[in-house]
Design a protein around this nucleic acid. Structure first.
Lengths: 200, 200, 200, 200
DNA sequence: TATGAATGAGTCTTCATTCAT
DNA sequence: AATGAATGAAGACTCATTCAT
């Protein structure tokens, strides 16, 4: 009887409403975790009724996936918009530091996002593949940029992949300030030095 | 009101039963996630009734925590039992390779463990602190071992911390074989070379 | 964690539904006892789903408390709305008889209510105080009415208190028809005579 | 396969064990209510295993019934052992006062007993009839004693019945000290005076 | 389009009772 | 006779999703 179809909003107000739901849902899930966020809270935060949510999204997971597609690049891959403009090899350390800072800033915006998403990756292969694809895209883009700027090491793909992992770990540590025993300034400097070594 | 007393089993059969529950619970949670695992499934997999579960454990979370304490070291910190015996600096790369292999092997035992646990870290501060403590213990132990064998770099704590992160990432990637585009043999070799560089 | 918000219905249909739940719950609990009444039975009797019950009430106890507040005065304190109009001292026996009859009628409406509520009084201090307060309110009201009509005995509070107890017992006996050996007409007459004696 | 029969203990130690279970069970139920008392607590308090309980008693209710039969007279009918010896009519008020004091003392021993038992009376007709029978037995005994001592009022059964009810209420109030506004010394005196009036 | 009341399957947990030893 | 571990049915409560309006 009922159409049961997900409406693709065309009117401006509808689009705004859908955006609000995505934003509210993604923020709540990132703050509190997927299972600790219920749809009524999402609706309330978005300023809509619970019913309308299911006109724009198939289910709760769908809201989250939309959030991922919209915001995840900022959280996971702050380097994906790495400038294609030329830079001098000697500025590489500075560039790295900037990337790290940007990454940290993004990370702070959504505390649990990273883990929650990564965990979801396992029960949800769609999400997993989405991220794997993004990761490799980012790697390729960085490799391309580096080659354009005269970096010539063999196996640059693998090296960049390792490097992004190192940065990921570092930023994560700093954001959560996991260990009092670790000096994060020192650690950052070593990371930069290490990556320069690895890639250059 | 209710007795709510957790029995600590003394008889051999009971201890085995408790172990079975921990194992079943931990495996299921690691495979499917905490929220996707219900107690009846744990009981069924452990070959016991749902009732008995609550004689050994306060609640579902408690099963998971017991699993963590029992298995997590193997998963997270395979190097924690690093031999304190002397080794020659030139054998360091080989040692790293062995550690990586052991890590990978352990990782395969429990698929989602890593992420699920890490995600839980946020909603459960007890678990979080448990892991942070373990991490730093492992770092310190490795630092000590390295110093005993003549490694003299400054900021060895930070360097080891970075190195364990790199290994963690590497093993994770290999276990999940995330990217077809990456040659994991090459990546492993580069990681070893990089860590040697970082620490030696 | 969860929203846990109790909705206060505003629409007419919702209010009716809430009333139905209170009525069904109170009746079932009064008939079968609090612990022998489960929420699904309440929902079924009220003609609603189990879920909706928890949108209007915090928990099962809450349903019962609502029932108490709604119906208990009728059951426990049928004299609470004692007319404040004057009456002649010689009509006092008649008045008593009317009160007794009304009390009996109310009592029949809910079989176990009295005991179940009284029993709950022990595990639930909120309910206990609620009733103690009501009891004393009723006593005071009756005392006032009596004084207005020229009753002058000392310690009228204590006397009224005793009298209401006697009536309570009498009605209870009659409703449950506990003893074949007792002639309840005779007993009623003696009670009236006794109370007249006690108070006048 | 198993006999499923309730054993009637013959050995002295077994009898003691059964008594312990009755005592523990009855005390716990009277203190905390039937539904808030679980069998494992009863067993623990009795110093026996949970299993053995079911060799002496058919079920939990059975323990309570046994307790009732053993202890209830003390709680409900302290006057049941009213001395059959002669007393002087002018000592009747004193006798009443003694009975009241004894009643109060017994009542204090088991706080919830009274209500819990009375409530059970409804869901359990066996218990109900047991009590009704006991009540009327007590009434008859008192009537007999009074007649032996020269009390000659008509409808003495009904009068005694009312009187025991009044005493019951009074003691209950005093034990639970329900109302600060009531002066219980005054109330006691009025009750005695009233009963003397009622019966003499 | 939009609302939010309503649904009911699903989940954790308890506890009277049974059973292997 | 005794133990206490084990059972599993039952019950309170939640929440993603649907539906009447």
């Amino acid at each position: 009887m009922s159409s049961n179809e997900i409406r693709e909003p065309v009117q401006k107000r509808s689009i705004e409403k859908k955006e609000k739901i995505i934003k509210a849902g993604f923020e709540l899930i990132c703050e509190n975790g997927y299972h600790n966020t219920d749809t009524s809270k999402i609706a309330k935060k978005a300023g809509v009724s619970t019913g309308i949510v299911y006109q724009y999204f198939k289910d709760k997971r769908d809201i989250f996936v939309a959030g991922l597609e919209k915001y995840a690049d900022n959280i996971f891959y702050p380097m994906i918009d790495l400038p294609e403009t030329k830079f001098d090899k000697k500025d590489f350390p500075d560039l790295l530091r900037k990337m790290i800072n940007k990454y940290i800033e993004n990370h702070k915006l959504s505390q649990i996002a990273h883990e929650e998403i990564t965990a979801m990756t396992h029960s949800d292969k769609t999400i997993a593949f989405y991220f794997y694809k993004r990761e490799i895209e980012m790697t390729n883009q960085i490799v391309k940029t580096l080659k354009n700027n005269g970096f010539k090491k063999h196996n640059l793909e693998e090296r960049v992949h390792i490097a992004t992992g190192i940065i990921d770990n570092l930023c994560h540590e700093i954001v959560y300030h996991k260990h009092d025993e670790i000096d994060y300034n020192v650690m950052t400097n070593i990371v930069i030095e290490n990556i320069v070594n690895l890639i250059n």
